[in-house]
Amino acid sequence: MAISDSWLTQQLAKRTLSITKFANLLWVLDARGVAYLPSLDWLVVSDLHLEKGSYLRSYGNPLPSLDSQATLKRLEAIIHDYQPKRVISLGDSFHDKYSMSRMTPSDRERLSELVLQVNEWSWVEGNHDPDLPDGIPGDACEEIHLHQQGLYDVVFRHEPKVLAVENGDEELSRAQIIGHFHPKMRTSISRRRYSGKCFVATQALFVMPAFGQFTGGLDIDDEVMLALLDKNERKAFMMYDGIIFGT
């Protein structure tokens, strides 16, 4: 852990960080799009979608193939700041199973060096990358379960898992930290309108923003999101122009 109390205080004053509680655990939310768990020295990032640019270019989309470089550069700076014991990449880290074959040698080397800087790096499987590409360090897993009797019970996975109940409705199993939905939102402050990526959570579900350079988003007022996150219960933390604020 590299962050100090003084650094944390400075960043909170600048509003580049926000603190929240989820599943009886204290979380630091960073305006750069990652969540940090101080008690375990874990850093969580989601939906890198590496090589999405080259994938779209192969279908005729006029996009530069520089997204992996930009995404890795931003992640590199964050890991330098926190120097976490563990990084959890919460699914869809690679845009498709051929991403590594399209990645430039320099980006592959940069990615490998970044992973090896961290004591433990966990690649949670996503719908875009159910299999970890060959030749990349780190450990692949379907999900990560964090449990302490009487204190917390939370699982890290890419998509939420629900349990059907007798009346035909669905409810979420244990507290979950997920990615997949790329949440974004719009809000008005002092008659000015803002929009941006966000973290959004209820008591049972915490949805990470997408970190990748070319990742779009799903508005938290979309019916898909409303079905998962009750509007009266949810809390959102929007990121805009380098700051983060709760709504």
Rank of each mutant, 00 (worst) to 15 (best):
S99Y: 06
G168Q: 04
T20M: 10
G91Y: 06
V162W: 13
L37C: 11
R174W: 07
K21T: 15
K231H: 12
K14V: 04
Y36E: 09
V224P: 00
H147Y: 14
L229P: 01
L205K: 10
L205T: 09
I136W: 01
E142N: 09
F211C: 01
E76Y: 05
K14L: 12
F214H: 14
Y98D: 11
Q117T: 10
H145A: 14
H49A: 05
Q117N: 11
P133M: 08
L50E: 04
E113I: 00
V34F: 02
M238W: 13
V34P: 03
I78P: 05
V118Y: 06
G33Y: 07
N127R: 13
N232H: 12
K184H: 12
S173L: 15
M1F: 05
V87M: 11
V118S: 04
H95T: 10
P38V: 05
D131S: 11
S122W: 14
L229K: 04
L114H: 04
G53P: 07
L228K: 07
P105F: 09
L29N: 04
Y82S: 02
D129V: 07
Q83I: 00
L48P: 02
M1P: 08
I189R: 10
D221A: 08
H182A: 03
D230N: 12
I19P: 00
P133C: 09
S122V: 14
S195R: 13
A2N: 14
V34C: 13
D221S: 13
W121R: 07
M238V: 15
F206T: 06
V118P: 03
R86C: 13
S58Q: 14
T16W: 03
E233I: 02
L163M: 13
L90S: 06
P64K: 01
P133T: 06
V155Q: 03
P133L: 09
K73Y: 07
N232P: 00
F245D: 05
F199E: 01
G212F: 08
K97Y: 09
V165K: 15
D139I: 15
H95G: 06
I3R: 13
K52H: 03
Y98T: 12
S6L: 11
W42G: 01
A70Q: 12
L132D: 08
G126M: 06
S122R: 14
S58G: 08
V154W: 03
Y36N: 08
E166S: 15
W42K: 01
L17Q: 01
D96G: 07
N119M: 03
N24P: 04
K52C: 05
S101T: 11
G217M: 07
K52I: 06
R108T: 03
V34K: 02
F94W: 10
Y194H: 06
M208T: 10
N167P: 00
Q69H: 14
W121E: 05
Y152Q: 01
S122K: 13
S54P: 00
A77V: 00
M103Q: 07
D81E: 15
H49D: 03
F181L: 11
L8S: 06
S122D: 09
F214C: 00
S89F: 06
K235W: 00
M225Q: 02
